[in-house]
Design a protein around this nucleic acid. Sequence first.
RNA 1: GCCCCAGUAGCUCAGUGGAGAGAGCGGCCGCCUCCUAAGCGGUAGGUCGCAGGUUCGAUUCCUGCCUGGGGCGCCA
Length: 573
Amino acid sequence: MATISELLRDATVAALADLGVSVPPEQVEVTPAQRREHGDYQTNAALRLARTVACPPRDLAERLAARLPEHTAGICARVEVAGPGFVNCFLAPAWLHGVLREVVAAGPDYGHGTAEAGRRINLEFVSANPTGPLHAGGGRWVAVGDAVANLLAAQGAQVHREYYLNDAGTQLDTFVASLRARLRGEEPPPDGYHGRYLVEMAEELRAEHGDDPDPEVVRAWGLARVVAMLEADLARIGVHFDTWFSEQSLHDRGEVAEVLAALAQAGVTYERDGAVWLHSRDLGDTRDRVLVRSDGTTTYLANDIAYHRNKVRRGFDHLIDIWGADHHGQVASLQAGLRALGIGTAESPEPEVILGQLVRLERGGELVRISKRAGDVITLADILDEVDPDAARLTFLLQSIDTPQTFDVEVVTSASLENPVYYVQYAHARISSIGRVAAARGVVRPPLEDTDLGVLTDERELDLLRSLAAYPEVLATAAALRAPHRVTTWVRELAARVHRFYRDCRVLTDDPARTAARLWLAEAARVGLAGALRILGVSAPERMERLDDGDDDAAGAPDAPAAPAAGASGSRP
RNA sequence: GCCCCAGUAGCUCAGUGGAGAGAGCGGCCGCCUCCUAAGCGGUAGGUCGCAGGUUCGAUUCCUGCCUGGGGCGCCA
């Protein structure tokens, strides 16, 4: 299904052809208008082509506008020339009514596209070290990764969610040493993990395996216990991984050794100071990197190259990694190693690494020091103890991952009612309630094909349809840019329009024709809200409790407790 | 020193090669006999970090600089 921009772009190209101006479609821009009086969409074609056609832009625009209606029949009510030579298009209400029928027909899949149709995509995200619970900041990758997966799936991809489990490195050794120390009733080593969870885990371990289990037992038990903890945390926020990929398994199957041999065979390695190095500098990196340490162990890089080769060999059409910006330095090294293996060519595209800026955790405006080893952490589970998963998720999906996010625990928890998630969910609950009331009153919604939508002429009504009309394009763009926050922005706008419609356009009236059309419009809006929320991994409740009934407004004022918060530090005289 | 990201309203952030730059929160003023007031309306608040460049047109693209965040390990 073509988007509006595409439809209007093609119409513009055709109209220009009528004028004897031949121009490839990709050189014609049709964009949403910024101001209502400029219509719904606008093209700057006349401005851009004026020079080559040797015609004043305004004149060219006039000629274009004269021809355009032939090609936009049924879509635009009118077109007009404005400003220095823009051609503004005003969508026809009848066309918007057609959008409503499309939405209802498509249901939950409305707006989905085919940009990734048939592609098998491996999406790796989170992949936090299995040494403790998920950190609150890591929630960003949980929410973003899952939403990106949903976005790609909505474009027809078969998405495989994968968690890379670093169960072979020194971090796990340190974790095991810390666990054993707790088991003995001692403090973990200075560079170990000091979190409280290890004390509790040691108790569990003791109950199951006694005071002095074999170190290998401790290791296996500890790893399994942490993975179970990670899975449980992820389940609480509704995220499920298809594969938990063990780094250790790469070693066990000899894949790391294979990769090292292949790199040596390719002549891109050398020995120095007892270590094996990769000529990564010649392959696009800023410097050479160690693959095998002088003690014979392999580096994270060597293992990661083997891991990605494994993913390629599993037959995916495309690999995507979502990493925090603190892993930025690894990208060039990994790609250098993969290139040497022939991965990163036209036949075998290199992995796409999405870097997201980090979360700055604050409590009441003050930076929270984060150190998993010191045990001074705020975990995702801590957050979920205080807010529901929907609020947590949407908070992480409010802004572009290109910007560092400030996550104030106090704001997100104590003032959670201000979370935009409730604004959107409330819009869904409100619009849903209309259907319930209609049913209770015995108002029957006639079949859509028997409903005359021509009565939907109010700007509030048309605004809803304009939003819904733009949704396929929003989804396609968000998927292409791997930017789920664009869906958040869109659904917040739709929710605002739903609230305004609700306020100004009464659905259940004495006029059966109007009631029928508005019931269907409400249904279309509900489908739009629910569909976008589903992409974001947020639930769309049919009903929500009213917070405050009657006149005790103070009870519902979320900022009421703010005053004591200031005094909590002991400033009260 | 080099690489990546950001700098937009008091705060948190959207957004765009175009026509007086938007939202939420916070401030102020209003709106519930009516489908849920977790809502709606109004008002105040901006040299889109700074300087050049490209362009008919730059907050948007390019370069430099400043500020902030993250990297550049025989850690992961």
